[in-house]
């Protein structure tokens, strides 16, 4: 093994005989094994939950103005821009002040089974009504519940817009009739260990 060097390296041989490289590796892994602080696992459903950054692209949200009027004008640009054709928009006439114009969405639904969370709808929206939010627990038991419609998407977000995210929050697992959900307590957060 030492032909390349031309001379016999006695230190190398001693190191090999005493398994120094092995011992070095073993010491490192033993350090990890005994120190509990080095664990980087996020105890997700039981005790903790990851709050994503604002840039995260999760479930769609439909937004309102500060005085509570819907921003969506049902222009259908989002559904045109969608590469997977997962957004359905049916406009209607409404002058009661529900939206910011007389044209509002009668139906605005997104099929999450097809959606690829690319964010094109967000870019296409002229009034910034559609945003991809920070909700990521989208698993459910049948296909129907993967279609989210206007009423659901108009609800306020569990993680407020002001919060910059990127932290692990205390959470608890809650069983509801529709399934299980992890409720985060946003007041108690910690940085993620790397």
């Amino acid at each position: 093994m030492n032909e390349g060097k031309g001379r016999f390296d006695i230190m190398e041989l001693i190191k090999k005989v005493l398994f120094t490289d092995f011992v070095k590796g073993l010491v490192i892994t033993f350090g990890y094994n005994v120190s509990m602080d080095s664990v980087i696992t996020v105890k997700y459903p039981d005790e903790e939950k990851w709050i994503p950054y604002r840039r995260f692209r999760g479930l769609h949200t439909l937004n309102r103005t500060a005085d509570g009027r819907e921003l969506c004008v049902a222009c259908e640009l989002c559904s045109k821009a969608c590469p997977t054709r997962c957004i359905t928009v049916i406009p209607m006439e409404d002058n009661t002040g529900r939206g910011i114009s007389d044209r509002v969405a009668k139906v605005w639904k997104v099929d999450l089974v097809r959606c690829l969370f690319c964010g094109y709808c967000e870019d296409a929206c002229p009034t910034r009504a559609v945003r991809l939010g920070r909700e990521y627990e989208l698993a459910c038991f049948d296909r129907n519940c993967a279609v989210k419609n206007r009423e659901e998407l108009l609800r306020p977000q569990p993680v407020p817009e002001e919060m910059s995210g990127g932290v692990v929050a205390k959470a608890r697992l809650r069983t509801t009739p529709d399934g299980i959900e992890v409720v985060a307590d946003l007041s108690e957060t910690r940085k993620r260990r790397v």
Binding site: V34, M36, S38, V39
Partner: peptide, 8 residues
């Protein structure tokens, strides 16, 4: 295995 790989 878990603890060596800094998991639980």
């Amino acid at each position: 295995a878990g603890h060596i790989q800094v998991r639980l």
